[in-house]
Nucleic acid binder design. Sequence first.
DNA 1: GTCTATAACCAGATAGAC
DNA 2: GTCTATCTGGTTATAGAC
Lengths: 217, 217
Amino acid sequence: MREASAPDRGVRSRDAILDTATELMSLRGYAATSISMVSAACGLPASSIYWHFGSKDGIYVAVLERARVTLLSALPPVEVPGADIAQRLDNFLEAVEDAFQRHPHDVKLLIGLGMVQGSASAAAVAELLHYRDALLAWARDSLSFVFGLHDRPEVSHGLARFVLRAASGTAVARWFDPASSLDAEALRVALLALAAHQGVPVGVPAAAPPHEGPSGA
Amino acid sequence: MREASAPDRGVRSRDAILDTATELMSLRGYAATSISMVSAACGLPASSIYWHFGSKDGIYVAVLERARVTLLSALPPVEVPGADIAQRLDNFLEAVEDAFQRHPHDVKLLIGLGMVQGSASAAAVAELLHYRDALLAWARDSLSFVFGLHDRPEVSHGLARFVLRAASGTAVARWFDPASSLDAEALRVALLALAAHQGVPVGVPAAAPPHEGPSGA
DNA sequence: GTCTATAACCAGATAGAC
DNA sequence: GTCTATCTGGTTATAGAC
């Protein structure tokens, strides 16, 4: 396995560079991460990094792409198991919480690098959007299955957006206080109430009447 | 007013630098914002910026401090008006939504620059923590008043954390899709359900039974 | 594919006249 | 307080031997 003749020396180096860049960029951000830092941290000279990725932006795009694939393949299929809504919702939230805890780098890459407009290339921004859309689509499909919303796509979309925002907000909270976790319990209560509020039968009364517009005062 | 002899030429320049730096840093992040960019954008030479703030980090701390004061003074007092919980909650959420919409720079500074550990000074990180804590305290006190939770601080703290995370997540969503707004309606439903779930009387049945631990399956 | 060496440039920061 | 000019060091990126 060691001294792999040379055929895959390249791919091993490539992976090492990607690992290092992922860690540094998710921790410090794209702009604050320099090629020389990556070089020093992974042991390979800067020119090797350029040979593999062409430019700093090229590394960034590769890092984002791999993070997206990794995170998405760690998520379970959208046909969430469970006999009823409560069970399926618990299973869904457990999957979200699990991925969130196990892939902090990937989550943070998605979140923290939104402020890259102007510093990074259009390709990198497009990859970020792709990343976000893929996560949102997974959440939407899963929640559609959980609540049986095949005929009400706008409701499952709204719930998915809510979950994604809660997860993003928790990721933000996590870099102030690294012990922050997703609080699946609160999310469960909130999602059930939101679904009920939209008229979805969840085996529980709606939490509040629709009430159009803010009430005077 | 113009040609103010010189006494306040200084403070005007200082403010102009702060304005420019706030805009650039909230848009591009701290690391990606250079002194020369600020200099070019506000018209003053780099050495004037150093005269006022001493270092790049000094500008950052001043920007954060002013953002915190601005945002906090834009928030209404915690004695949220309203005859009942529903009215007070609506007023609270309206205040949050309003501040969120009117001060995008300040919100983004708080959010997006969490990944500054290692690039910025301890003073800057401390200022960021101070910022976050002040917002959380305001939300906690307001929600305590809204729901009448003076004797249950841990509940109001949990609700405040939930609101702050939702707002953070929305700020993140906003740099993918600038049209994103806070969705006060969803937040209203979620907060009522969460409060009810904690046994707080909100004039509405609890959304779900406490149910200890995930249900088998 | 990996290395050493270096080009070309821009960053943060300072000196000193005014 | 503001300016011009400049120093130093790190940055992205490349050349060319191996």
